[in-house]
């Protein structure tokens, strides 16, 4: 079985982000970028399934600017076999909407015919949490989102989902789309020799024209603002004062 893993190049989670002065978004020029952490979990899961002999090939795909090649190389160094870069823009500040990404991915799926797509549940830049679901809908496949465990058996995927009330286990007929939650696994450190080997693994570039997809934006960003500054707390003198503040000021009692 072939597994397809979409990976997104996002602002590194350690970077203190800044809003562009015109409020049109987050400043992405000269900022350290890395693989979306949830996608890293997805790559790890796919590689583990290959190591267990469940999967035969792991293909990673990224959509966006040419610099996303670095992200794909990281996935190859982790252990993916092959990479596809869909060059969709040359502007690092362009963030494709989930529906566009899902449409592009559905074309890649049509070409690659994977038995399973494992995606991150969301990207840490815009937190949309929609691409996996939209892709499943476009393909007419089953979906298991927020996965904390994935087992493949007899043409099905058993997916344990982290839902509000606890854990829910569902059985999906393959092919299917799974999106990863934080506790699915802990991604491995890349071994140095594999960084060297990743250079020799195939990385194919395809254009939107080749795939026959036109990207259309449906959303308009009105403004982007930084979170409000946190204000200093107050010290209370007694339990009575605390209770009264909780009642009258915070309004939580």
């Amino acid at each position: 079985m072939k597994i397809l893993v979409p990976v997104k190049r996002v602002v590194d989670y350690n970077v203190r982000i800044r809003v562009r002065p015109d409020g049109s978004g987050v400043d992405l020029a000269n900022v350290k970028m890395s693989m979306n952490p949830f996608d890293e979990i997805a790559v790890e899961e796919a590689i583990r399934l290959k190591e267990k002999g469940v999967a035969t090939e792991v293909v990673v795909v990224s959509i966006g600017v040419a610099q996303a090649k670095d992200t794909l190389r990281t996935a190859l160094a982790m252990g993916a076999d092959r990479a596809i870069l869909v060059t969709a823009t040359d502007d690092v500040n362009v963030d494709l909407e989930p529906l566009s990404v899902a449409q592009i991915l559905s074309k890649v799926v049509a070409n690659e015919q994977p038995g399973l797509v494992i995606a991150g549940k969301q990207a840490i830049d815009n937190d949309m949490n929609a691409t996996g679901q939209m892709l499943a809908a476009l393909l007419g496949w089953g979906q298991g989102t927020f996965a904390s465990s994935v087992t493949i058996e007899d043409g099905s995927a058993l997916v344990t989902r982290e839902v509000d009330g606890g854990l829910q286990t569902i059985k999906l007929k393959l092919p299917a789309v799974v999106t990863t939650d934080l506790r699915l696994n802990e991604p491995r450190y890349v071994a140095l020799p594999n960084i060297m080997k990743a250079k020799k693994k195939p990385l194919e570039e395809v254009s939107l024209d080749t795939l026959g997809v036109a990207v259309r934006s449906r959303l308009t960003v009105l403004k982007t603002v930084e979170p409000p500054q946190r204000h200093a707390g107050v010290k209370v003198g007694s339990v009575d004062e605390l209770v009264s503040k909780l009642k009258n000021e915070a309004g939580v009692l």
Partner: peptide, 15 residues
């Protein structure tokens, strides 16, 4: 270069 950066990143996260 790109590969040396990748080595730096990998080593750094382990460190």
């Amino acid at each position: 270069n790109e590969m040396q950066e990748e080595v730096r990143e990998t080593t750094r996260s382990f460190v």
